Simulated assay, not measured.
Amino acid sequence: MDLFSRSWTALRTAVAELPDEYFSRPSGCAGWLVRDLVCHLIIDAQDVLITLVTPAATEPTRDAVTYWNLVEAPTGDDPLDALTVRLAAAYEEPWLLRFHLDDVGSAAGRAAELADPAVRVGTRGEVLTTGDYLCAYVLEWTLHHLDLIAHLPGAAEPPAEGLARSRELLEKIAGAAFPPSFSDKDALLIGTGRRGPAEAEKAELGSWAARLPLVLG
């Protein structure tokens, strides 16, 4: 629960500190500008709020690891992705995106802090404990923090604990561990296809390199 809050606060702070001109630059999400990514974060924050007030009475069907599915690489045809891009453009001014993310994002953060980790909630047709749901989102926040600063040298990175926990989650999702020589950040970037492995890294990955990237959905 605490790691969710720290990861989310760090990501929202990074957005708040972005110069206006960076909103029209590419992000680490292929095909998305920074403004598109920030718009996606607003939608994510809304999803967190909705889920936290959607109690479930049945036993959990997923946990922090199995919340995520490995899916095919996006083709660009997904209607929600297209909507995100159009919606982001409609904001026109970066300060509007910052304001909306701060408004909805702060509410999502407060709701997470007040939530009982043992309470079961429903989302995407599945049931999780609140604690597992928020833990799963540490991976989401951490990856998108890396996307946000992908082309912004010197920007503050995600919390080290968030990077470590996200690597752990990704390895459990994949059912295999990255080489110990990989930093947590590099394991996440290479594992999810945000950058390709160098020849030496590919050699360390061995046969596992053929399974990459791991696309989460």
Rank of each mutant, 00 (worst) to 15 (best):
T192I: 11
L101K: 09
W68D: 00
T75E: 14
V65H: 05
G28P: 09
A164R: 13
G162R: 02
P197K: 13
A16D: 15
S166R: 10
L70T: 14
K185H: 03
L189V: 01
E113Q: 09
T129E: 06
L87K: 01
A30Y: 05
T84P: 01
P158F: 00
T54K: 07
E204S: 06
I43E: 06
E199V: 15
S106D: 04
A174K: 08
A164Q: 09
Y137S: 12
R195T: 15
T66N: 09
T51R: 08
F23E: 02
W32M: 01
A115C: 10
R25T: 14
L97N: 00
V138M: 03
A111C: 07
S24E: 10
Y67L: 09
S5Y: 11
V53G: 11
E161M: 08
D184C: 13
A64F: 10
A198C: 06
K185Q: 10
V38C: 01
L3M: 07
T9A: 15
H40F: 03
V34F: 01
W32Q: 00
D102P: 11
T142I: 08
A30L: 06
A156I: 13
R62L: 10
A45P: 03
G125I: 13
L97F: 07
E161I: 07
L87D: 08
L52C: 06
L11F: 08
M1D: 06
L188F: 05
T142D: 00
C39Y: 00
R110I: 08
V127P: 06
D81R: 15
V48Q: 03
V71K: 14
D102M: 10
G125D: 13
L216G: 08
F178C: 06
S183V: 08
